[in-house]
Design a protein around this nucleic acid. Sequence first.
DNA 1: CATCTAAACAGAATTATATTCTGTAAACGA
DNA 2: TCGTTTACAGAATATAATTCTGTTTAGATG
Lengths: 209, 209
Amino acid sequence: MNDKLISEYNILEFRFPGRRAALKREILKQALDCFNELGVEATTIDTIKARCETSVGAIYHHFGNKEGILSALFFAAQDDQRQHLEQELAKTDSLRDAVYSIVSSYLDWVVAHPSWARFLFQARSSVSKGPFHQELKARNAKNYQELKEKLLSFEYKDTKIVQPFEILSSLIVGPSENYCRAWLAHRVQTSPSDYRDEFAESAWRSLQR
Amino acid sequence: MNDKLISEYNILEFRFPGRRAALKREILKQALDCFNELGVEATTIDTIKARCETSVGAIYHHFGNKEGILSALFFAAQDDQRQHLEQELAKTDSLRDAVYSIVSSYLDWVVAHPSWARFLFQARSSVSKGPFHQELKARNAKNYQELKEKLLSFEYKDTKIVQPFEILSSLIVGPSENYCRAWLAHRVQTSPSDYRDEFAESAWRSLQR
DNA sequence: CATCTAAACAGAATTATATTCTGTAAACGA
DNA sequence: TCGTTTACAGAATATAATTCTGTTTAGATG
């Protein structure tokens, strides 16, 4: 349990390194927990301040406003998840492998970082409004484009993709995402990674006509 | 466009009927639009008040607090969606038909009620914390149970379900849900109902081993 | 119809929360 | 060592949610 938590906060160590960012990391860490435990609206700046034993001044110095904390966390999580995906995807050289690797890396990341995953789900709609929606839009577009190129590159040396491309990513990660939501909300107990093969196989089958 | 909007607000006419509930409906209607346009946090009671030309007293009289508006909208939408599903599901008498009907009724409902669908997605996490989380939990459990019984009833007279039941609903609606999110966020343009057959077929295929 | 009661509404007052502002201390580079 | 930027503290302010008190209206009852 403790090991898991330490590993969860590595995302912060990596993205906000150094001694001078220590309080910054601490604020993000406590904010993440508050957002998950109490919900975004219910956690006040005062709550975070109290947990970090710091001041409002420090918080606003580092993040500008509440939305700033939210998006810092959001983009850190999204980047980490994306990085993990790209690592796995780089190893593949067939469409089937790619599908497996997309599904697996997604499930594994969620299981390894449940707090971050939960937060990603609940914060997305806030970030997609708010002052960082352009940034989010740009990132999404870039990620989508890269994935598209990777997948289409297999069309010619491998199995032909038989579904309209628009719905492809929905078919591949939709079920996994849906199940992870349920797991993170404690509506189901079995770990998503226990169903790695089922989800990967099903995704692959769903692409065929 | 206007027809569509009128039809969207039928959900309110049906669930809060009568002349005395007129303001109640109006508040919910304006709140729904505000939440979708500005986001839940960014819409203030004052904004809603102004759009309805009413008073804070009236709003708090009808809903208690902001969360009350949120959950009234949420449960109205969820009930309507569920009712639509049950209508369609009742007509089926094979597992394959059931899968088709679940996917189709979902896609059609979202396309017919985009504002409500968008709201459902963004409000769920708020409601699942907050004072109505028990109510939500109970409804989810009931819905899950009913769907489970319906689907399992086919196991004996029809195709055998070959996946663990826990992941079944994720396999069936996961891709459709994922695509609808993208559509409601304007990340894709093609109407979900245009892909009805693709999603239904894929879901069915994904269940086989 | 007169009266009574509960629900529907209005708006001022209060409370909670986010944000700004002004000042101080620590780090860091020249 | 000096100057400058960054980090932090906390009081003051602004904004928004909620409460409270009073008034009006609709519907029931005799």
